[in-house]
Amino acid sequence: MKKSSRGRLHWQPIIGATIVLFMLAVAIVGPFLMPYGEAEIVGFAFDLPSPEHPLGTDVLGRDVMTRLVYGARNSIGLALAVVVLSFLFGASLGLLSATLGRGVDFVLSRFFDLILAIPQKVFALLLLAILGTSLPVLIIVVAFLDSPRVFRISRAIGLEINALDFVETARLRGDSGLGIMLRETLPNSLPTLVSEFGLRFCFIFLFISALSFLGLGLQPPSADWGNMVRENASLIGFGEMMPLYPAFAIALLAVGVNLVTEWLAERWSNPAHE
């Protein structure tokens, strides 16, 4: 019964994984292969594609292809840093909250409820307006605003696991809360957390690109897929597609991660594969 769904979905992880691996390769190796610098001006503004500049040049005369590649490194790296931080914060507190229960759980839950009640985008704007836009501030602010979602899902999955009898057995032999969390809860919540990691990555990636687009993300002259669209947007008025290339790259990566994540989630939710 499960087999047919697995068979039918087979193309999904392959396409998804190909996209993700390709993007990662570009982000890691790409910058070393590019003939120009990230912010190097190599021609006139908006040169048409040529053998030297396969995708043309941008508003300041920089090579678009080079900036796309550097943009991959910057955008993916930034989003990864944020997700990791958000998980370190949200997932550890979520699992701890589920394991310790009572007072700790109540306080942490109310705290994260409150952050969750705040409109993310608006608050990012407010915080960045006041604190100014620098890389550490950006990472911390976005990770902080995203962590309640990670907290909620970790806490929910933690509570679900902690209600199982093997956790009770651990409590009955006198294991500490931290011991239970590390030995019993965490290994069993990993599948859920990994697929949640994929979803959060997509969300944060898009969120940061929106901030960059608004001029509040990575600051020029660093290349970022969001701010590249903004810089070159005027060209769209002339019917050109070039300014949207970075946006397509964003969408492609988001689709890739989505495909892999959905497949993983389906596999893991399926006891037949155990």
Partner: peptide, 17 residues
Amino acid sequence: KLQLIHQYPDTALNPRQ
């Protein structure tokens, strides 16, 4: 001294140990 055996062996064993 006191040991408990649960009703459902499925949930009484950590599947990842």
